[in-house]
């Protein structure tokens, strides 16, 4: 019986965590302040592509611009985002909009469902690595 109670509690915890994380995992950059749940003042997750030539690292801070549907937002993150974070890759930044800067406390890289060999021909490789601001 104790095992069953533990399992029910585990299932309840998972459902609760899921619902508090919101069913839609993120807002796109162009939805901030426009879509319900994407209000500018609250803690949100924002999805977009790291714009080309926007990535800089100052001291311990990582700065970049997120772009989606031609809308952009400046993002500041303290530390190294990790994963395969780089320019031209879609990411989900979790944090809060302060003024016109999104102060991220967590960055998650969102890789695509395409798997291209590192030794593929140059055109295929370039297509796989190109910036895709509509990702997501």
């Amino acid at each position: 019986m104790a095992v069953l109670v533990t399992i029910v509690l585990a299932g309840g915890t998972i459902v609760t965590k899921f619902l508090t994380s919101a069913i839609d995992y993120y807002c796109n950059v162009d939805e901030i302040g426009l879509r319900a749940g994407c209000e500018a003042g609250r803690r949100i997750r924002v999805q977009g592509t790291v714009e080309k030539n926007s990535l800089t690292a100052v001291n311990n801070s990582t700065n970049f611009v997120l772009i989606f549907n031609e809308k952009t937002i400046r993002v500041v993150y303290e530390g190294d985002p990790g994963g395969i974070f780089q320019e031209c890759i879609p990411v989900v930044a979790q944090g809060r909009l302060v003024g016109d800067v999104f102060e991220a406390t967590r960055i998650e890289v969102k890789h695509s469902n395409a798997y291209v060999a590192d030794n593929a021909d140059r055109l295929t490789k370039a297509e796989a690595q190109e910036c895709s601001p509509q990702a997501g």
Partner: peptide, 8 residues
């Protein structure tokens, strides 16, 4: 198999 262009 090769490594992936983005994921290595």
């Amino acid at each position: 198999t090769p490594s992936d262009v983005n994921q290595g």
